[in-house]
Amino acid sequence: MTDSAAMRELLGEEARETQALIDSLTSNIDDLSSAREGDNSDDEHDPEGSTLAFERSQADAVLIQSRDRLTQIAEALERLDDGTFGTCTSCGQAIPAVRLEVRPYTPMCVACAS
């Protein structure tokens, strides 16, 4: 059994950190879009390194993952409220406390998540 108050605090911290990352990524993506606006140069062949398109693509991917994590955190809070937190949504077995400490929003045990 997990301490729901401690898990709620851990999930809250995860949510705050994830939201800060989302805010930062959104700002970076906006900056990349602004930098590219009105510029018709070919950055695909820029010898200086990665392209703006590549950087934006990476930021978009992390942004999608971060938004998904926020959804998972909200779902974990719902499981805390309804008393199913810490139980694998796939097999019904208890999720080890160590896994929940590392990834408190996980809905599945290691075996089912693999």
Rank of each mutant, 00 (worst) to 15 (best):
A59Q: 15
F85Q: 04
F54L: 15
D43V: 08
G83W: 00
E75R: 06
P104W: 10
S34Q: 07
Q19P: 12
D60E: 15
D68W: 00
Q19D: 11
M7L: 11
S33P: 00
C112K: 10
L80M: 06
L21P: 04
I22Y: 05
R8S: 13
S4H: 14
E17N: 06
S57N: 13
A15E: 13
V98N: 00
L10K: 13
S4G: 11
M7G: 05
D60R: 15
D68A: 10
R79A: 05
D39T: 05
A113L: 02
S66N: 05
D46G: 08
L11C: 10
S57P: 00
S34T: 07
F85S: 05
C112M: 08
T106L: 02
R56P: 15
I73F: 00
N40T: 13
P107S: 11
Q58M: 15
G12T: 15
A53N: 10
T51G: 13
N40Q: 10
L80A: 03
Y105E: 11
Q58Y: 14
A20Y: 07
P96Y: 02
C88K: 00
A113S: 11
E78L: 06
Q65D: 15
L21S: 02
S90V: 09
E48G: 14
G83A: 10
E14S: 03
C88A: 00
I73T: 01
V102G: 03
L52I: 08
R36D: 05
D60V: 12
E37T: 11
Q65T: 13
A94N: 06
R69S: 03
L32S: 03
G83L: 07
A15M: 09
V102C: 05
A74V: 07
G83S: 07
S24I: 04
